[in-house]
Design a binder for these strands. Structure first.
Lengths: 126, 126
DNA sequence: CATCTAGGTTGACATTTCTCGAATCAGCCC
DNA sequence: GGGCTGATTCGAGAAATGTCAACCTAGATG
C-alpha cells in the first residue's frame, strides 16, 4: 500500500465551511472567525503569498516543489514548512507522483475567502 | 548623521497599491506580496477578524471602541493593540469625536484583497 | 483647576513563528 | 542491494506576536 502524501485532515477549512456571508454584511460569529483566521494567517506571509500565487497560477493548475523552491532565497526545509502551513490551512492540496510532489490550489476555498472580503455592495471602489 | 532613516511607511496598503491582478491569474511579484501580506496577517487572528467584521458591518459604517471592547473577553489594551494592527495594515481608519473613538472599515482595500483572491476567470471551482 | 471616563502607550512575559542544518523518508537508476 | 536525488521531519535558536498590568493622554464635567 503506497502511502500518499495526504497527511492529516487537519484541514480547518473545507469547501463546505459556512464561511460566506460577506464580512461587511453581518457580524462574523466567533467560531467562524476562529475557523477562518488560520487561512488568512497562512496568507499573511510574503513567501506563502507568493507560493500561493505560483501554485494557483501554474500552467496545469499545479506546481512542483522542485520549481517552487529555487524561486526563493530560502532553504528547502523552509519552503517545505511554508507549504505545509498552506496545506494545513486548507489552501492547497499535495500529491506525490514519482519523485516529485505537486501542489494544487483549492480555488473553491480561495473563492470563499474572496466572497467574505467582498463588500456586499457598498463603497466598493471610490 | 541625518535622520533619513525613517521613510518606512508602515501603511503598506493604500487605495492605489498595484495589487489587483488575481492571484491565480499571474504570479504575484515579490514586492507586491510583501506589501499585501501584512493585510492578510492582520486578518489572520480570530479577534481581529471579528473586529473587522463588527466594524465593517456596523450601522453607520463605523463602530465605537466602547462597543467593540466589551464584546470580547479581553482587556482594553489588548483590543486597542488589535485595532492598531488593523489600522497599520491599512484596513481601518480611526477618528476621535469627543470622548469616543470610532473605527471605520476601508472597504476599497477589502475589495482589493477580495479581488486578489477571486479566481479571475472561469476556473472557479474546477 | 480637580476629577472622572474612554482609549492608547509602555514594559514585561509566555507562546508562537521563521529559519536553518542534520537526519530521515520516498522513489529512481546502476 | 547501493547510491543518488527530491522532499519532509526533527531540533534548535532568533525574532515576532498576544496578552496583561501599570501608566499616560484627550475631553468632558463639576
Amino acid at each position: 500500500m503506497p502511502k500518499q502524501v495526504t497527511p492529516l485532515p487537519h484541514t480547518v477549512l473545507g469547501e463546505d465551511t459556512p464561511c460566506c456571508p460577506p464580512l461587511a454584511q453581518q457580524r462574523l460569529p466567533a467560531e467562524v472567525a476562529t475557523a477562518l483566521a488560520p487561512a488568512f494567517k497562512a496568507l499573511g506571509d510574503p513567501v506563502r503569498l507568493q507560493l500561493m500565487s505560483m501554485i494557483a497560477s501554474a500552467e496545469n493548475g499545479e506546481a512542483c516543489v522542485c520549481d517552487l523552491t529555487p524561486a526563493f532565497d530560502l532553504s528547502g526545509p523552509t519552503i517545505s514548512h511554508h507549504l505545509r502551513t498552506l496545506r494545513e490551512a486548507g489552501l492547497v492540496d499535495a500529491e506525490r507522483r514519482g519523485t516529485w510532489v505537486y501542489y494544487r490550489a483549492r480555488k473553491a476555498v480561495l473563492s470563499q475567502l474572496a466572497a467574505l472580503l467582498a463588500s456586499g455592495g457598498g463603497t466598493t471602489a471610490a
